[in-house]
Amino acid sequence: MFDLTGKCALVTGASGGIGAEIARALHAAGATVGVSGTREDPLKALAEELGTRAHVLPCNLSDPAAVEALPKAALDAMGGLDILVNNAGITRDNLLMRMSDEQWDSVLDVNLTASMRLMRGVLRGMMKARWGRIVNVSSVVGAIGNPGQANYVAAKAGLVGMSKALAQEVASRGITVNCVAPGFIATPMTDALNDDQKAAINMRIPAGRMGTPAEIAAGVLYLASPEAAYVTGAVLHINGGMAMI
């Protein structure tokens, strides 16, 4: 099950905890992976760890020209592009009353607009191949909101709506477009929280713990697989029960 042999996958934000794990999962299922991100060193380390079938594709997603060029670079490096995982995301938290246009724009640019540009760039090949998988990594906060993150929440909710629109446009061509919406996931970012903060977060999660990057990657792997051909426009919530929607 979930055999991706011969498929080529581009994963953005692969220098981060969740993105790296997504790349590992797709690679372990047999896919060739292109790992993208802004920080080249972690990408190189990841590609080295994966060994064969791994390509480093650095890209600054806040640079429109670089985003436009990424699908072609991925295609040239891997010889195909069957799976796109828009995982990269940034936060610039602030209360809305204090939020600057720059904070708003930078988060929307990277988390939403860059994803749109990458989807637009990969669709041509997928349409021709009559096969494609796009998985956008949203967030539980895109569904339930979070104070201090109006920009991030808008982008993550935007990903869901955008995915549903595109899913309808290309469903007849064998291309699916879905979202995975992680809840609280243990990453270097959450490691920085103190025990009281962690306990407060865990109180809100029926499972009583944060999720792991591997638990998110497993969801992405499923949606990227041939077995998920009939799943499109869906949001797979992986959040330990903290929001049952």
């Binding site: 041509r124 349409m127 021709k128 446009e169 290309v170 007849s172 061509r173």
Partner: peptide, 9 residues
């Protein structure tokens, strides 16, 4: 409309 995009391609 999608067919027309594909034709152009």
């Amino acid at each position: 409309s999608l067919d027309t995009v594909e034709l152009v391609m």
